[in-house]
């Protein structure tokens, strides 16, 4: 197990909701990144979490930018640091709205240009900062304030989109597994070039579950196979942590859904589609891992 440093960069004065997993993720990301780091933050929950001027709860520089612009600002910042010989980590810390929806053009551009930065999308599967409206990352069947009858469309496959850009490193993580997250951030920052980590971030008020259940929800997401932990280094796939077991034998998805209020109105068809989607994703990953293993053996 990695030695996680005691030094805290997220101070105990955040304006986060009780049980917020985004602030937990940010805590481990900054522990892994260390002092020589700048956070670039588009409009998202972290706009609030960091505190109100003239105070800040974050002990590294935080640059707040236009909603659609995190990856673009990071591009300029990274190039400027490199131009003057600085190795400072430039990390975008963006919600799902600022990533899969309004910010995807800037993200795509920055990835394609080979920008030396790390983009972290903490995904609470809705526009939570404005009070839980649907996003492209909201799953089928989930109730939000703009999908009062539950969402009818699939969650956008962000990871497939990012993968299509051939980043040097990409991974998924979940707030319930901070050591896995820590290790992935560490590894990502050790590689020059564009890196991406997609972190599931259960949201107590948005997903309608008690604040003390944040970790439990994250674990249920992973053990049920609704969320898969893996990483790709230059395309090479590795299933990590609890997903290794979950891909062999997963817990019932219903346990995960029933623990949250947002799926209360989900229809049996919605649930079937969620299950089907999860199964398909697991199969695809398993197939790819096997193929890569066979290829490696041949080589």
């Amino acid at each position: 197990m990695a030695e996680i440093p005691d030094e805290e960069f997220i101070l105990k004065t955040t304006s986060a909701c009780a049980g917020c997993s985004a602030s937990l993720i940010l805590r481990y990301v900054t522990k892994a990144a260390g002092k020589d780091t700048v956070l670039v933050i588009p409009a998202c929950c972290t706009s609030v979490i960091q505190g109100v001027y003239p105070n800040t709860a974050v002990n590294v520089p935080v640059y707040n930018v236009a909603f659609a612009s995190a990856a673009a600002v990071a591009s300029g910042m990274s190039e400027a640091f490199r131009a003057v010989g600085k190795k400072t980590n430039v990390i975008c810390f963006a919600g799902d709205g600022g990533t899969v929806d309004i910010g995807i053009q800037a993200l795509s551009g920055a990835l394609e240009r080979g920008t030396d930065f790390l983009y972290i999308c903490y995904d609470n599967e809705a526009y939570s900062n404005t009070g839980m409206q649907r996003s492209g990352a909201t799953p089928i069947g989930a109730k939000t304030t703009t999908t009062p009858l539950g969402k009818n469309e699939y969650k956008k496959d962000l990871d497939a989109i990012v993968e299509a850009h051939n980043p040097v490193y990409m991974a998924t993580a979940c707030s319930a597994y901070p050591v896995d997250l820590y290790n992935k951030v560490k590894k990502a920052l050790s590689i020059p070039g564009p890196k991406f980590i997609h972190v599931l971030s259960p949201c107590p008020p948005g997903w309608r579950f008690p604040s003390e259940k944040t970790i439990e929800l994250g674990k249920l997401a992973v053990t049920s196979g609704m969320w898969l932990l893996y990483e790709r280094e230059n395309g090479k796939l590795t299933i990590t942590g609890a997903s290794k077991a979950a891909m062999k034998k997963s817990t019932p998805i219903e346990d995960y859904l029933k623990a949250q209020g947002r799926f209360r109105t989900a229809t049996p068809e919605d649930i079937a589609m969620l299950k089907e989607n999860s199964k398909r994703k697991m199969a695809r990953l398993a197939h790819e891992a096997e193929a890569q293993a066979a290829e490696a053996e041949e080589a």
Partner: peptide, 9 residues
């Protein structure tokens, strides 16, 4: 956006 990031440094 990139100019903002660069000029910020």
């Amino acid at each position: 956006g990139a100019c903002i990031g660069a000029a910020a440094t």
